[in-house]
Simulated assay, not measured.
Amino acid sequence: MTPPPPLGRHRNKDGLTFDPALDDTELATVRDALARGRWADARQLLARTGDDWDRRGHRLVVLAEAPTSATWARDWLLAEPDSPDAATLLACAGVLRCLAGKETPETAHALCLAAARLAPRDPTPWLAVLILARRTGTADERVRAFDQVRARHRDHHHAHHLMAACLAERQEGDRDDPLHEVYDFAAWAAEQAPADSPLAVLPVVAHAERYRALARAGLEPGDPARSAHWTTRRARQVMKAAFDWWLEWDIDEDTADGTDTTTAATAHPRRKVDLNYLAHAKLHEGRLAEAAALLTRIGPHVTRVPWTYPDRDPAAAFRAARRTALGAT
Rank of each mutant, 00 (worst) to 15 (best):
T2A: 11
P4M: 02
H10K: 02
N12M: 00
K13Y: 00
G15D: 14
G15C: 10
G15E: 13
T17K: 09
T17L: 15
T17I: 14
D19Q: 13
A21H: 05
A21E: 05
A21Y: 03
D23K: 14
D32Y: 01
A33G: 02
G37I: 08
G37A: 07
R38W: 01
R38L: 06
R38S: 04
A42K: 02
L45V: 03
L45W: 03
D51G: 03
D54P: 06
R55S: 04
L60Q: 12
V62E: 02
P67G: 07
T68K: 14
D75S: 11
D82E: 07
D85C: 01
A87Y: 01
L89Q: 01
C92S: 03
A93T: 03
L96F: 05
R97S: 10
R97H: 07
L99D: 04
A100G: 13
T107P: 00
H109W: 07
R117Y: 02
D122N: 10
T124Y: 00
W126Y: 09
L127I: 07
T136N: 08
T138C: 13
R142I: 06
R144D: 15
R144L: 14
D147V: 05
Q148F: 01
Q148L: 13
R152D: 04
H153V: 00
H156K: 09
H158R: 04
A159V: 05
A159F: 07
H161T: 02
A164E: 09
A168K: 11
D174E: 13
D174Q: 12
D177F: 08
V182R: 14
D184I: 09
P194F: 03
S197L: 09
P198L: 06
A200H: 14
V201F: 11
L202P: 08
R210A: 04
R212D: 15
R212F: 00
A213W: 12
A213E: 13
P221H: 12
R226A: 15
A228C: 01
R236A: 14
Q237T: 06
F243Q: 11
L247M: 12
W249I: 05
D252V: 03
D252T: 07
G258H: 04
T259R: 14
T261R: 14
A265I: 11
Y277F: 13
Y277S: 08
A279I: 06
A279L: 08
H284N: 15
A291W: 02
L294E: 13
L294C: 11
L295Y: 15
T296G: 11
V305F: 14
W307S: 09
W307Q: 09
R312C: 00
D313P: 08
P314G: 02
P314E: 05
A315R: 15
A320M: 07
A320L: 13
A328Y: 01
A328G: 03
